[in-house]
Write a protein that binds this DNA or RNA. Sequence first.
DNA 1: GCGTATCGTTCACAGCTCGAATGATTCAGG
DNA 2: CCTGAATCATTCGAGCTGTGAACGATACGC
Lengths: 153, 153
Amino acid sequence: MSDVKGAEVKGAAALRATVAFNLGTLGALAADRFAARVEALGLKPKHAGLLAALDAGSAASQQELASRLGVAPSLIVALADQLQELGAVERLRDPEDRRRQVLTLTAEGRSLLARCADAAETVDADLTAGLTAAQRTALARHLRTLGEHHLPH
Amino acid sequence: MSDVKGAEVKGAAALRATVAFNLGTLGALAADRFAARVEALGLKPKHAGLLAALDAGSAASQQELASRLGVAPSLIVALADQLQELGAVERLRDPEDRRRQVLTLTAEGRSLLARCADAAETVDADLTAGLTAAQRTALARHLRTLGEHHLPH
DNA sequence: GCGTATCGTTCACAGCTCGAATGATTCAGG
DNA sequence: CCTGAATCATTCGAGCTGTGAACGATACGC
């Protein structure tokens, strides 16, 4: 980009100019703030991710959820245990394949998910406070585009 | 936002529509890819962050670096140890306050930082492959704006 | 000078996630 | 119908990261 001289050695400015670096840093910041908010609900961000996956796709096996969220199946067990304890999900043996546990959202689970969305929107309001409405929607749109390209859609 | 009905319960779609959620998810993805690339240099992302902080600001004490990076001072010790082992930084007692260790980048450190920037740019090319050049610069600009508002500048 | 505060360092510990082992269940094929 | 291979959920042990509480050394206010 900076072709003023061409001999300039890349430094901190070059790193900070990249999307990857800012995405990583701001992502950590957003994740922390989101985590702090959902903690009041007794949840961690991964719980919210699992709830969202359950609401988005149809009832799924734990294996499928694991690969969709990009985590080990053993982690799904722990997350589902805790969500079950909160009454947010139901675990039912699939009658057509009794090895599978089918997870489904309860009304309580949907309520929790809604409050997670509220938490995220609150964080949004704070994060994007310095942006105009137009910039905000443009940013949201670009991030969504990236997500659709690189995340299991 | 969606005031079409008002009775609709927020679900996964609402969560996925937020900047915070996408920022967190994509940030983790970007961080993973960046980590994979700098691993070949014997570094972790935090090392790159430290190098960048050293190149950006003037020579700083470890305490100052800790608060700038948002980590515990004890972690700076470990990071600086490893960077010193690689010949990337020099540790010198501040003659005006012999409690302080002043870290400075060596030529090797600047070279490593430049290669970290290269790695980030490579990740960028992959991440933003589905975007037009105009979208790419708009995204980078928005992220930078967010960073300047919320990170220690 | 003497107590207090600050810096860097070490160390033990908690949290998170994974991978390998296990048991139950299903399925393919003779 | 029976047997061996494959798949699912679960448990458990291990690795990695980062933190917070000590501790010694040094600086500073009074």
